[in-house]
Write a protein that binds this DNA or RNA. Sequence first.
DNA 1: TCACAAATTTAACCAGGATTCATTTTATAC
DNA 2: GTATAAAATGAATCCTGGTTAAATTTGTGA
Lengths: 214, 214
Amino acid sequence: MAYQRSALMQERLAENRERILRAARTLVAQGGFRDASINAVAAAAGLSTGALYRYFPSKADLFVEVLTEAVRRECAILREIIAKPGTADQRLRAAVESFARRALEGPHLAYAFIAEPIDPEVDAARILCRQEFSDVFKTVLGQGVASGEFPPQSVDVAAACIVGAFTEALVRPVAPTTPRSKDEKLVTAIVDFCARAVAGIPVAPAKQPKRQRV
Amino acid sequence: MAYQRSALMQERLAENRERILRAARTLVAQGGFRDASINAVAAAAGLSTGALYRYFPSKADLFVEVLTEAVRRECAILREIIAKPGTADQRLRAAVESFARRALEGPHLAYAFIAEPIDPEVDAARILCRQEFSDVFKTVLGQGVASGEFPPQSVDVAAACIVGAFTEALVRPVAPTTPRSKDEKLVTAIVDFCARAVAGIPVAPAKQPKRQRV
DNA sequence: TCACAAATTTAACCAGGATTCATTTTATAC
DNA sequence: GTATAAAATGAATCCTGGTTAAATTTGTGA
């Protein structure tokens, strides 16, 4: 027999798979995992529930992939930002700002990826993803502490605090959706908070710090 | 007719109600809302499932009460702490430390009260509770900013960040339960992080800051 | 065009957990 | 002690949402 799928067909299948992942991500971004039932995802992807199971063996598998994929992208962006030249303070600010700005696009998404529980299997994957996030922030923090730009501190805890701080600050206004105009101020306030927290900079939000403390 | 419950009986009923609330809180503290099914709560309280519905009209109602009650207590403690004399820095540190220390007793509880979703009705109640938490922290922050002890900042965002920071830092280790010996360092690191974040204090974790900046 | 493999649909199926209700037990009033 | 109201039980019911599978459609190779 040696049954062979035509290139066109293969592409269509791959497209379906992508559509499912996209639909799942969109639904999570809009209403969290709660609104992302298999039925809803399938419908949003333009497929039947049954068809979805030809692409993903279970709901958990689907969302593990959605999660890791999104985190992979996010971390790549952040790593790129902190690899650029500049002080640790500048790079940390840039990373937090970028992260926060993207999270504002879909607050539920950020929340779901960091905290919202669904399934023990997915939760397990989340722990690994968080580790990846944390590592990115730890890198800058470690550099800043090593160079004396930041005071000595627990970089592990600080990294977690940064993630938590801006998650809470961004995600809370999910219920009464805040006007888009306030976003800028919110981002600035969060960035400043985190920067002060790790650097101990009294005022000067957006200025170049440059001083080296030991 | 005029059926009248004896004092003894009334007391027993009130005790049952209390027992249910206590059981629910304990179960949430141990394993989050996920482990706090109506059956489990009833069993833990030494009652049948049916009986529980004589005391609470629905699961949502029960947990709304558990939530608001716990938050009420917590806020009372915090308000007391920040009403004591001392610098804003000292009082903020004391409040965060107290909060963190109690959260470590039952990390799931803290998490469940701040983030874990169960039911739209409960989530709505949570928003009000968070407001209350936030208000407590805002009080100290506002005082510190007004007196010039803290640099100017968005006290709303900073309050949210504080809650988020230590939630994330405390709750994350829920999966692989960290050794109790590390708790002290963790609490210290979190307190320092928050203190630096609002005050911009470079080093000096537990010392008296006292300097007034304008 | 026919035979067969793969994909898809649709309609059950099933599990877990909240809620209800007929029945039993316990408390109160006379 | 008896009758009645309240409380408690625990099994039955219902609902939600993930999963499966028989039947159907579509694609592939001769």
